[in-house]
């Protein structure tokens, strides 16, 4: 009986059921909660988007990037500066922020993309810090130094401004939803496979006709562009951006999101983002010990679930379909019908 229920939940229909339940939950949630908790869910959304963006680089391609906050900052500052000085509407700056962050990633990563593992990691840390320090030093008087840039407009859809917590909540989660759809399609495509191959074995990937360099750069540009989108939404929500929001700690948070959730797994990243953004709220009464709990949780995770909370299951869809026809799952070495 129990197995039967399990099997049913694993089929496509069962998955659709759970998915619709989650979607309804998301739609109803803000109408049951106070503005404070709607904002908590908004930042959950921001972290989900950042997690998804880093997941492309870290999860899919296996490039250790601890400077992702730099791209996030570039997206946020592009929006902040162009909106406050030239008055360009925030929503129009969304694609531009993505483009700027992506272009910056292309420029900075082209010369270092051949580096491996920890060497690459060190360079990305440096890159993130250079961005933050540059913003802090107020080049040409445009970044406002430690004070940052303030007075950023709300995004306007034309017929309505996105100006309340509720509207921001739906705004960010629609963007996250679209990203999820796009990234899920990518996972089951030639591009996603190529990325995974590079993560698994770079030399074998190259020997199988995959242009390793270009595909790594592509992943970096997409990851940075999505972080730029997150930066744009973050800037318009807070109406102020300052360098301290884009510290090394922020990069570490994104890194943890992907590691906690499971590298290369979209639902995993959402769970990781939830853990990172909701944890502090739950443990607010014990604020001083927050990092202690967090560290302990990380250590336990690495011991008991090194692959993350929800690692990506390979070949799961085909298996689900096979269950419909064949009652018993095949053991390795067993022939169908034998």
């Amino acid at each position: 009986m129990n197995d039967e229920i399990k099997n049913r939940l694993n089929t496509l229909g069962g998955r659709r059921f759970w998915l619709s339940l989650v979607l309804i939950g998301f739609a109803v949630y803000p109408f049951l909660m106070s503005d404070y908790f709607i904002d908590v869910a908004f930042f959950f959304g921001i972290y989900a988007l950042l997690g998804l963006s880093l997941n492309v680089v870290l999860g899919e391609v296996g490039l250790f990037d601890l400077g992702h906050a730099g791209f996030y900052a570039i997206g946020a500052y592009t929006t902040a500066i162009l909106n406050t000085t030239l008055g360009i509407p925030v929503l129009m700056l969304l694609p531009l922020s993505a483009f700027t962050a992506g272009f910056f990633a292309y420029l900075v990563c082209s010369p270092i993309i051949h580096l491996k593992g920890d060497y690459f990691l060190l360079v990305t840390i440096g890159m993130g810090e250079i961005v933050r320090l540059a913003l802090l030093n107020n080049p040409f008087g445009i970044t406002g130094g430690p004070n940052g840039v303030f007075g950023i407009d709300y995004p306007s859809l034309g017929f309505m401004d996105i100006d309340t917590s509720l509207k921001f909540y739906f705004f960010i989660w629609i963007v996250v939803g679209l990203c999820i759809l796009g990234l899920m399609s990518l996972q089951h495509s030639r591009v996603g496979r190529a990325w995974n191959c590079i993560r698994e074995d770079e030399i074998a990937a190259e020997a199988n006709g995959i242009d390793v360099r270009s595909f790594k750069l592509l992943a970096f540009v997409i990851g940075a562009a999505l972080a730029g989108v997150a930066g744009n939404i973050y800037a318009s929500k807070l109406m102020i951006v300052s360098p301290e929001s884009f510290s090394f700690m922020e990069s570490c948070m994104m890194f943890s999101i992907v590691l906690i959730g499971g590298m290369g797994s979209v639902p995993g990243v959402l769970i990781g983002a939830a853990a990172i953004s909701l944890f502090p709220e739950i443990f607010r009464p014990m604020a001083q010990y927050r990092m202690l709990f967090f560290g302990a949780a990380m250590i336990l995770m690495m011991i008991f679930r090194p692959g993350g909370i929800w690692p990506r299951k390979r070949g799961a869809i085909q298996k689900g379909q096979a269950l419909k026809g064949i009652k018993k799952p095949l053991l390795p070495g067993e022939l169908p019908g034998a």
Partner: peptide
């Protein structure tokens, strides 16, 4: 040198 964490089918697709 296979892609160890991908399925056999995905290896050949790659």
């Amino acid at each position: 040198r296979l892609f160890p964490n991908m399925t056999c089918l995905e290896n050949i697709m790659a």
